Simulated assay, not measured.
Amino acid sequence: MQVVKLQEPYDNNLIPDGPIVLCLGFFDGVHRGHQAVIREGKRRAEKLGAKLAIMTLDRYPGIVFNNEENKDFAYLSSERKKLELFERFGVDLCYVVSFDEKLYTLSQQDFVEKYIVSLHAVCAVAGSDYTYGKMPYENGGDMSHLEGYANGRFEVVKVSHILDDGEKISSTRIRKALRKGNVKMAADLLGYSYETSGQVVHGFERGRKLGFPTLNLETKEPVMIPSEGVYAVFVRFEGEEKRYMGMASIGRNETFGSHFEKTIEINLLDFSDMVYGKNVFVEWIELLRGMKKFSGAKELIEQLNHDKERTRKILEKRN
């Protein structure tokens, strides 16, 4: 997949020749609703003999505008992960556009001219709530007005929302699930297991002393971490295909004191190598339990042995 980064005003020489079907949206998480947009775009591209392209933004608009409702916003996918998913779903070309003042002050018509027509789009595909151009969007920056701006130069396809249990699949709904630790619901809405990445760093080595050595992770990408608790997870090291079974703890080690920062620690079930400095990818499969302050090391070890047994059953079934 070819990736082209654009910043307003962009150089026209950056734009590849040839017709495209252009899917529009922010695509945070690339969930099942987004995948429906991409599938429709792919169907149209095959019909028209065009490449399948996506245009996304390098940051979430709500963060730039500092909207009150977005003060606790957290990404579901890094740019790296989004691009990986786009490629997995058959996208040929991805435009990543810098969301800055020069972009969001463009009129709706100017946005269409520069970011749809000039990209050689013969068809634009987006969800029914897609917005573009200068705010307020209700003055013309929604899907109901796009055909007027197109003026017959490209086809406009509006994709209806995908429902799950009668409710719209959305990035907001997935964030709510993750805040409750419901990684199984998040995976159902995403269409794949929720994943985060991190680097293995040195910790206090309490797990090793208890007989449960852990990988202590420092997160690098600005993505959401599930709520505090103990989870069954799969772990993959960067550059490797093999996945390892593990149980992950997100918490503050309250059994050993009340002053610790929140950490992510993962005990791999069949792994004992020293891997400090390595980057890992974590698939969050199922919440085992919430965090608990134990009376001491003995009670904690008993619980960890029970967690380990449950983890192995869950993950062996998934494998």
Rank of each mutant, 00 (worst) to 15 (best):
M1E: 12
M1L: 08
L14S: 13
C23V: 14
D28W: 05
R32L: 07
A36P: 08
R39E: 06
R44D: 02
E46M: 07
K47C: 01
K47L: 13
L48G: 00
L52H: 04
A53P: 09
L57H: 05
P61N: 08
I63C: 04
F65Y: 12
N66R: 06
N66I: 04
N67L: 09
E68L: 08
K71H: 09
A74Q: 14
L83G: 06
L83T: 02
G90N: 00
D92W: 02
V96R: 06
V96A: 13
D100Y: 04
Q108Y: 04
E113S: 09
K114R: 11
K114G: 07
H120K: 07
A121L: 06
A124D: 03
V125F: 02
V125G: 01
Y130F: 14
T131W: 15
T131A: 14
G133C: 07
G133F: 04
K134A: 05
G141I: 12
R153H: 05
E155H: 05
E155R: 01
V156R: 00
S160L: 02
I162R: 00
D164M: 08
G166Q: 02
I169E: 12
S171W: 02
S171E: 04
T172M: 03
K176L: 05
K180Y: 04
M185K: 11
A186I: 03
A187Y: 11
G203I: 04
F204L: 12
E205R: 14
R206C: 13
R208S: 15
K209T: 14
K209R: 15
F212L: 15
L215H: 07
N216K: 11
N216P: 12
K220C: 15
E228Y: 06
A232H: 00
G251S: 12
R252I: 04
N253P: 08
N253A: 14
F260D: 00
E261N: 08
I264C: 03
S272V: 13
Y276Q: 00
Y276E: 10
G277S: 01
N279E: 14
N279F: 08
F281Y: 15
L287N: 10
L287S: 05
L287M: 10
R289Y: 08
R289S: 01
E299L: 10
L300D: 13
Q303I: 01
E309A: 09
